[in-house]
């Protein structure tokens, strides 16, 4: 991956967040949550700054980032699409829905489309099992999604 040069104010933002948690190593996960919510993802360069601030190794930060599925090192699409792959949704056909999204957008799970409009991810149970299979686009939840609905859902966001 090409190296990114972080903007001055981004570095400051990360430093401020670390400071909020008193630069404590034990607060690493909380720091990562905060930083990701501000920047959208956690590239290696960001992890380096965090490691330095919390006086720990980059390896440890990287270890934690890659351990938890909530943290991502790849930027998400403008409209992040998540397909629920919890058991309830799976038995009601979420795999077919996922395959249709992959086919229509021509990307794999964890990737973004070339224009950066969409990214696809799987998630495990949003707890709306009554609406299975469930798809979320950003904050919006779509319930009882069939493969034939996929085109319509994508079209809703395509021209925004």
């Amino acid at each position: 991956m090409p190296k990114i040069k972080l903007a001055e104010n981004t570095v400051q933002l990360i430093k401020d967040i670390c400071k909020e948690f008193e630069n404590k190593e034990s607060e690493l996960i909380n720091v990562l949550h905060q930083v990701q919510s501000k920047l959208g993802y956690l590239p290696a360069e960001v992890q380096e700054v965090i490691a330095k601030e919390l006086k720990t190794s980059v390896a440890k930060v990287y270890g934690v980032v890659t351990f938890y599925s909530f943290f991502t090192m790849i930027p998400q699409g403008e409209n992040p699409i998540s397909i629920c792959m919890g058991t309830a949704c799976y038995v009601r056909g979420s795999e077919q829905v996922l395959n249709e999204f992959k086919r229509q957008l021509k990307v794999e799970v964890g990737e973004s489309t070339e224009d950066g409009k969409f990214s696809i991810n799987c998630l495990r149970c949003v707890g709306a099992c009554g609406l299975a299979p469930v798809v979320t686009v950003g904050e919006k939840v779509y319930g009882r999604v069939a493969p034939t609905d996929v085109k319509k859902i994508i079209a809703e966001y395509r021209n925004h």
Partner: peptide, 25 residues
Amino acid sequence: LRYGAGAFVCGEETALIHSMEGLRG
């Protein structure tokens, strides 16, 4: 409050505790 970050194994109590300490769960 302490936040999990998406790891099923963290439901196991020793893993959960490590996660709360800021480590890999």
